[in-house]
Design a binder for these strands. Structure first.
Length: 915
RNA sequence: GGGCGGUUAGCUCAGUUGGUUUAGAGCAUUCGCUUGACGUGCGAAAGGUCACAGGUUCGAAUCCCGUACCGCCCACCA
């Protein structure tokens, strides 16, 4: 008998959980003596295995709703497969989560007034390990409370010695196979975290900044420009209006465009000292002019162009309305778009000859990287700069003169800025690529250090933080006449660290990289050939697209928390920047070695080679280890790999498809292969044997009521444990699943969970009603044939309905349509079974009327009653089985009281899925 | 710039290889109900041109083409 009153989840769950755990039901090795149990095995266990290596949550904090929703899916699939007769292994774990944990733990230390540096590497590692172990314990309890039927004795931490051993071995294998290498390269550097980051560990943020147009002016003033300046500065002159609005020009592609300007003229009867033609004049502040008019104005400045076609700027002194800044800005942009190196000098602002030099105008958002420029680059098709390509120029900078090559590359967009770019290979990814393509461009001239400050090659700016120096540079460039224009509201996107949100500084440094090309090929093919199937289907494209990006994977991080790289150097390598900004690494005798030469100074092995050898300071990217998770977890216990690999499913959120699933698909097939070939190099392995999982099920993210992703910082999260306490774990689990489909985000709020609490209570009451009416009857032992003969129309209809439901449910479970299954069950049990069937049979099953007089006493009525009771029993039996994967606690509790055949499984967990 | 998803009742969402039905559920709304499992309930009601426009079909929310709007991911912006 079930207790009276509404369903009490808190009490029941504890009782049922203990029951499950005490009996080792969560272990794949569980065997039962009961013949109807799916764990009943005669002789050796030859049950098919079903394995799900669970995504390990980060060991640095509490579990949240997102974790819980994943567990709900993982567990329901596990329980379903258990009921289908498979030996089910759900293998739990906890992730050390490298950089994230280091950041979190540093904050913990900060509160205690301690720092990482004070503690030292060893102590820090130990303390952080302890911190993670404590958190893991809490998380483990929470996982258990959710009813997650995982084998907790097999739980692993990513820094567990057994795991570490295998992860390091993978690195060594990759090295031996030439798939990892050490290289000096431009990487994303987080100045706050003091580590390199892979592209994927960075984000972009919208920002409004300044776009600086500055001049790389030639070292000598242009004599003609000086001559014009000296002749006309401040003069009143008469100008002949030459042309009017709408003159047509041809642009660099040969297309005609309309060059709109206001007024334009020439100085009659004068000789241009530059080339003996009339000197062109830009007129500002004159109205309604006609060609042929003569006007008087004051010369206020000179527009200089790289091709020496100078233009004098003349303003109408009588027009007080003219806004000079706007007018000049307009002209600057018009001219710079079509002509090389246009800039404007105002006679009174720039009286000295030295300002009248020619030079290139460049646009940049990061003037502080100027000191690292090693070339100028233009588009090869750009007519404006064609003649300059291949030449070397000497230009003025804020800290002295510099020589720069002018090169051409398709990557340059002629439309951007002035169509000419400064190449700063040590501080910008595109520039680095250009330097790699053009051997004449020096790639390494670093002017910003790992501390994010300008270094010694920046002269008086040394020691300033990159961002701080920008203001100072702006002032100085203005003072020296180098800044020719400034767009103060330029919108761009800045790259930031995913973890700490500080701006990324691209820097050159030595790191270890995985040559991903061959691994990506394999990973792509495994999915294309359906050895691994990704759900939802649409995400397969995302996966394949990522596999097509050619970039190698930077796997070293300059942290303390993680797997220390198993590489030893003869003398500790230390990066430094030479007098000229070149990045070097100190190896023994201060020599830069090629990769081949490295080997003399470097050993890749786990054990310490002894004196004079120092271990690499770096640790591996956390994804390098979690990317091997399905293999290394199974290698931790003897025989597991052989038994459980490849696994059947990887269930995780779609948001980490790129982060994690891709990495597993890169490393697991490789790792599985290299493990299997350890003893027998000639083994012939099939793709089916090495792929880590047959299916990838990507669940949606949990959103709040408004459709916004739940997060700590927004404070819109729901505490799953509060929900479990208030409404029951089954209700919470159901709320993740019901009416939801693969890959789709879904909104969650209390009322939803509450409604499933009500549903559980309904099931409770239906069961109470059923058991109460069955009473002492041995329904389970009734002869179905005899009952069939006595059945009435309602019974048959109900049986037919439930048979159809079973068929649908099984098909949908197999097709991963769990939301549909749960919803159909919901509607069936409530609106068919309870609302209709239960009500119609009441008159048949009661033995007494309202007054207590016996009824239904005739043989015929008794037969009919038995048929109804049997049907009740039959249906509830099926419902309990079908519902169990979704709401395990309440169904198990009812199952315990439910009339069962003698050989039936004692636990619903191993009761057969109906068919 | 490349890709993906969504658009169905007031709100949140299902709709399972096109057809069992008048397109369903939950929440909210209205009316009624101490009916012997359940008020965490029961009975009833109201609420939808399935984004828009075309096509395929005996038949379309479902398949195809296009449009609009919303959301997301990736790449790039000197």
């Amino acid at each position: 008998m079930l207790p009276k009153g509404p369903y009490d989840p808190n009490k029941t769950e504890k009782e049922i959980l203990d029951y499950w755990l005490e009996n080792d039901y969560f272990k794949p090795e569980f065997r039962s003596e009961q013949k109807l149990s799916t764990a009943y095995v005669e002789g050796a266990d030859k049950r098919e295995t079903y394995t799900n290596i669970l995504p390990p949550p980060n060991a640095n904090g509490n579990l949240h709703l997102g974790h819980m929703s994943g567990y709900a899916y993982q567990d329901l699939m596990g329980r379903y497969n258990r009921m289908k007769g498979k030996a089910v292994l759900l293998l739990p774990g906890k992730d050390h989560a490298g950089i994230q944990t280091e950041v979190v733990f540093e904050k913990v230390l900060e509160k205690e007034g301690k720092t990482k540096k004070d503690m030292g590497r060893k102590k820090f590692y130990e303390e952080c390990y302890k911190f993670c172990m404590e958190n893991s314990e809490t998380a483990r309890e929470q996982e258990k409370n959710l009813g997650l039927s995982a084998d907790f004795d097999r739980e692993l931490f990513t820094l567990d010695p057994k795991i570490v051993k295998e992860v390091l071995q993978t690195f060594i294998d990759l090295y031996d196979d030439g798939l990892v290498y050490r290289d000096k390269r431009l990487i994303n550097w987080c100045v706050r975290c003091q580590t390199a980051l892979a592209d994927i560990d960075t984000e972009y943020k919208e920002s409004t900044g300044k776009l600086f147009y500055f001049k790389y002016g030639f070292t000598e003033p242009d004599p003609y420009a000086v001559e014009i300046k000296n002749k006309y500065a401040g003069e009143e002159i008469e100008v002949l209006v030459e042309r009017n609005k709408g003159m047509k020009y041809k642009n660099k592609e040969g297309e005609e465009f309309k060059w709109e300007f206001d007024y334009y003229g020439s100085i009659p009867n004068e000789t241009n000292p530059a080339d003996n033609s009339d000197l062109d004049v830009i007129l500002i502040g004159f109205d309604d002019l006609e060609v042929g008019d003569k006007v008087k104005g004051k010369t206020i400045g000179l527009m200089l162009r790289l091709d020496k076609d100078f233009k004098l700027i003349v303003i109408n002194p009588d027009n007080s309305e003219v806004k000079l800044d706007e007018e000049l800005d307009k002209h600057f942009h018009r001219f710079s778009k079509y002509f090389a190196g246009v800039h404007i000098r105002l006679f009174d602002e720039y009286p000295d000859d030295k300002y009248y030099n020619l030079g290139f105008i460049l646009a940049t958002t990061r003037p502080e990287t100027k000191f690292g420029d090693t070339a100028l680059c233009v588009n090869p098709k750009d007519e404006r700069y064609k003649d300059w390509v291949g030449k070397e120029i000497e230009v003025q900078t804020l800290i002295g003169n510099a020589k720069l090559n002018i090169i051409a590359d398709e990557i340059i967009d002629p439309e951007f800025g002035t169509g000419i770019m400064k190449v700063t290979p040590a501080h910008a990814p595109d520039d680095w690529d250009i330097a790699m393509k053009h051997p004449e461009v020096l790639p390494e001239k670093q002017c910003i250090g790992f501390d994010g400050k300008l270094n010694h090659i920046c002269g008086k700016y040394e020691g300033m933080k990159a961002l701080e120096s920008r203001q100072k540079l702006e002032e100085d460039m203005k003072k020296q006449g180098i800044l020719v224009n400034l767009n103060g509201k330029y919108k761009n996107r800045i790259q930031i660290c995913e973890r700490c949100k500080n701006q990324i500084e691209p820097l050159i440094s030595h790191q270890w990289f995985v040559d991903t090309d061959p691994l990506k090929e394999k990973a792509k093919q495994l999915v294309k050939d359906d050895f691994t199937n990704i759900m939802p289907e649409g995400k397969e494209n995302v996966y394949l697209n990522w596999m097509d990006t050619p970039e190698d994977w930077c796997i070293t991080r300059q942290l303390w928390w993680g797997y220390r790289v198993p590489v030893w150097y003869k003398i500790q390598p230390k990066e430094f920047v030479t007098e000229t900004g070149e990045v070097k690494e100190r190896f023994g005798e201060d020599i830069m070695h090629s990769m081949k030469d490295y080997k003399e100074y470097m050993k890749v092995q786990v054990d310490d080679p002894g004196d004079k050898w120092v271990q690499d300071e770096d640790v591996f990217d956390t994804w390098f280890s979690s990317g091997q998770w399905p293999v290394v977890t199974l290698l931790a216990k003897d025989g597991d790999f052989e038994k459980f690999y490849p696994t059947q499913i990887m269930e995780t959120g779609w948001d980490i498809l790129i982060f994690w699933v891709t990495r597993m698909m890169l490393l697991c097939p490789y790792k599985a292969k290299s493990y299997l070939l350890r003893d027998d190099k000639n083994l012939d392995l099939t793709d089916k044997e090495i792929t880590p999982f047959q299916n990838v099920y990507l669940h949606g993210l949990v959103l709040d009521r408004e459709g916004v992703k739940m997060s700590k910082s927004k404070g819109n999260g729901i505490d799953p444990f509060k929900m479990m306490h208030e409404f029951g774990t089954d209700a919470l689990r159901l709320s993740f699943v019901i009416g939801n489909k693969v890959g789709q985000n879904y909104r969650l709020y209390e009322e939803k969970i509450e409604s499933f609490r009500n549903y559980c209570n309904k099931i409770w009451n239906i069961s109470k009603f059923t058991l109460m009416n069955i009473g002492d009857e041995q329904v389970q032992n009734f002869d179905p044939d005899e009952i069939g003969n006595n059945m009435e129309k309602d019974d048959k209809k109900m049986i037919k309905h439930i048979d159809k439901l079973i068929e649908n449910s099984t098909r949908n479970m197999d097709n991963f349509n769990f939301g549909v299954v749960a919803q159909e069950l919901y509607e069936s049990i409530w609106h068919e079974f309870a609302d209709v069937y239960l009500e119609t049979i009441k008159p048949r099953i009661y033995t007494k009327d309202r007054k207590g007089n016996p009824i239904n006493t005739s043989d015929e009525a008794q037969d009919s009653r038995k048929a109804a009771l049997w049907t009740l029993w039959y249906c509830l039996d099926k419902y309990l089985r079908l519902l169990h994967p979704f709401i395990p606690f309440i169904t198990e509790k009812i199952w315990q009281e439910f009339p069962k055949k003698e050989e039936e499984s004692e636990t619903l967990m191993y009761a057969k899925w109906p068919n």
